[in-house]
């Protein structure tokens, strides 16, 4: 089977495509790549864009990816797609948000709502247990 190449497109959240292809066209960071069977082994980053898979029996499939990484071996091509737009600034903003959230989560003592709720539930359960105990004692007498 020299005329096809196995193609896997996966993201951290799901397997997107897996099967053989006659050729795969991907948006490489330094230019689009057309990968035919028996391509030289290669690793590169991908830009956001379209991955085009030409199926061996004709026809083609398109997948949009928001960047990622690409691995090529002579008979296997693997697209490790990102699930989200990644850019230095965006990641930075996300990191900042996580830090803020940490401060809020730790400082925020007014989030006692849930504690109060839990305490109320606990009190109710305790009351029920106590009632049962009382009835059991009555039974024995």
């Amino acid at each position: 089977m020299a005329s096809t190449i196995h193609c896997d497109i996966v993201s951290a959240e799901a397997e997107i495509f897996s099967g053989s292809a006659a050729m795969v066209v991907v948006p490489g960071e330094e230019g689009d790549l057309g990968i035919a069977p028996r391509h030289a082994p290669l690793l590169t980053r991908l830009r956001p864009g379209q991955v085009r898979v030409l199926l061996p029996e004709g026809g083609e499939e398109f997948y949009f990816i928001s960047g990622g990484l690409l691995e090529i071996q002579p008979h296997v091509v693997t697209v490790l797609s990102d699930t989200a737009q990644r850019a230095g600034d965006l990641d930075e903003a996300a990191a900042l948000k996580a830090k803020e959230e940490a401060e809020r989560a730790i400082a925020d003592r007014s989030a006692g709502m849930e504690v109060a709720q839990a305490q109320a539930q606990l009190a109710q359960a305790m009351a029920q247990l106590a009632a049962l105990e009382r009835f059991r004692k009555q039974l024995k007498r």
Partner: peptide, 10 residues
């Protein structure tokens, strides 16, 4: 979603 974790991981 992985997106939600990226910040913390970074």
């Amino acid at each position: 979603r992985l997106e939600d974790l990226i910040g913390s991981i970074k």
